[in-house]
Amino acid sequence: MSEFVKVCAVSEIPDPGKMTAEVDEAMVVLFHLDGQFYCLDDVCTHDGGPLGEGQLDGDQIACPRHGARFCVRSGEALTMPATQATTSHEVKVDDGQLFVKIKLT
């Protein structure tokens, strides 16, 4: 099983805001929203588009390629053309640092 990996200082991501990062050989997007942090695979389940390059709209991120929207908190696919959730990873904050544990699916 994978471990929590330190990614960055919490101060590096504005609220609201997002940042892409490489964690444990996976590309992920980190979100900062209403004081909370979330982490999703940087992959749109529709056709692999880079979610991190999309627009953050409330607690939704829209894929820049075909507009599929995902819930930042859960990874759930909210609109067509995506039908599948993208993977959501566990996040924790410790001493001002952000940690992510990659969930292998």
Partner: peptide, 9 residues
């Protein structure tokens, strides 16, 4: 617009 959202293409 739910089955084919404007952003689709």
């Amino acid at each position: 617009g739910k089955i084919i959202p404007p952003d689709d293409n």
